[in-house]
Measured scan of single mutants.
Amino acid sequence: SPEVQIAILTEQINNLNEHLRVHKKDHHSRRGLLKMVGKRRRLLAYLRNKDVARYREIVEKLG
């Protein structure tokens, strides 16, 4: 489901952010981070168009 995919991506994004705080010059990982953020944004847009209630619920849960 989109909610699960968004939750997994959010966790991976948070982990990668911590990694990049330590390894500032790791541009390869930064590119992966940007791809993940874009994918999460697309999934959220899809969910917002399909079911606003589910969209609001996941945004509330994940912050």
Rank of each mutant, 00 (worst) to 15 (best):
H28L: 10
V37S: 02
I6V: 03
L44K: 00
I6F: 03
E3Q: 03
I8S: 06
V4A: 13
R54I: 08
G38R: 14
M36G: 02
I8P: 01
L16Q: 02
R21T: 06
K50V: 15
L62V: 03
L34K: 09
I13A: 00
D26S: 04
S29I: 14
R48G: 02
L9Q: 02
H27Q: 11
H28S: 14
R42N: 05
L62A: 03
G32I: 15
H28T: 11
V52S: 13
V52I: 14
R54C: 07
Y55G: 01
E3G: 04
I13T: 00
R56T: 10
L47V: 06
L9R: 01
K39L: 14
D51T: 01
K61H: 10
N14V: 05
Q5E: 09
A53L: 08
I13S: 00
K50M: 14
M36P: 00
R42S: 07
M36I: 08
L9K: 00
V4F: 11
I6G: 00
L9G: 00
A7F: 15
R48V: 04
E11H: 08
D26I: 03
D51N: 07
Y55C: 03
R48Q: 06
P2S: 05
R42V: 09
T10E: 03
E3C: 06
V37Q: 07
R48I: 05
I6C: 03
E18C: 09
R41M: 09
R31W: 06
I58D: 00
L62S: 02
A45W: 13
H23M: 04
K25D: 15
I6K: 00
H19R: 06
L9E: 01
E11N: 07
V59A: 04
K50E: 13
H19E: 04
Y55M: 01
L34V: 09
Y55E: 02
V52E: 15
L47T: 00
Q12V: 07
N17L: 15
L47F: 02
L47E: 00
L33N: 00
K50C: 12
K35M: 11
R48Y: 14
P2L: 15
R41Q: 09
H19N: 03
V52A: 11
Y46I: 13
R30Q: 06
G63K: 13
G38Y: 14
A45T: 10
E57N: 07
L33E: 00
I58V: 09
R30M: 11
E18H: 09
R40W: 05
L47R: 00
E18I: 07
R54P: 01
L16A: 04
A7L: 15
A7H: 07
A45G: 06
R54H: 06
R56D: 09
K61W: 15
V59W: 06
K50L: 15
L62D: 04
K39Q: 15
E11L: 11
E3M: 05
S1R: 08
L20F: 05
G63A: 13
T10F: 04
R54K: 14
E57V: 05
G32A: 15
A53C: 10
G32H: 15
L20H: 03
D51V: 02
R40E: 01
R54S: 09
H28N: 11
H27M: 10
L9A: 00
L16T: 03
L43G: 01
K24L: 09
L16W: 04
V37C: 11
L44D: 00
H27D: 08
E18G: 04
H23R: 02
H19G: 03
G32K: 15
Q12W: 12
V52Q: 11
Y46W: 12
P2R: 04
K61I: 11
E60L: 10
K50A: 10
K50D: 05
L43N: 00
S1G: 09
E57K: 07
E60V: 09
H19T: 04
R31V: 12
E11P: 01
V37L: 14
I8Q: 10
N15C: 14
V52M: 12
N17F: 15
K24G: 11
A53V: 10
V52C: 12
R30H: 11
V37H: 07
S29W: 05
I13F: 02
I8C: 10
K24D: 07
N15P: 00
T10K: 01
N14S: 05
Q5D: 07
L34G: 04
L47S: 00
S1V: 06
H27K: 11
D51R: 01
K24S: 11
V4H: 12
K50F: 13
L62F: 06
N15W: 13
E60I: 11
E11G: 05
A45E: 13
R21A: 09
Y55T: 01
Q5P: 02
E3W: 07
R40N: 01
A53E: 14
L33M: 07
G38I: 14
K25T: 12
L34E: 08
L62R: 02
L34A: 10
E60G: 09
V59Q: 03
K25A: 10
D51S: 04
A7W: 15
I13G: 01
H19I: 07
G32R: 15
R30A: 07
N14Q: 07
R56H: 12
E60C: 09
R41G: 09
L20M: 05
K24Q: 11
Y55Q: 01
K25P: 04
V4R: 10
Y55K: 00
V52D: 07
A45Y: 05
N15F: 14
H27C: 11
H28A: 14
E11K: 07
S1Y: 15
N49I: 13
Q12I: 13
I6D: 01
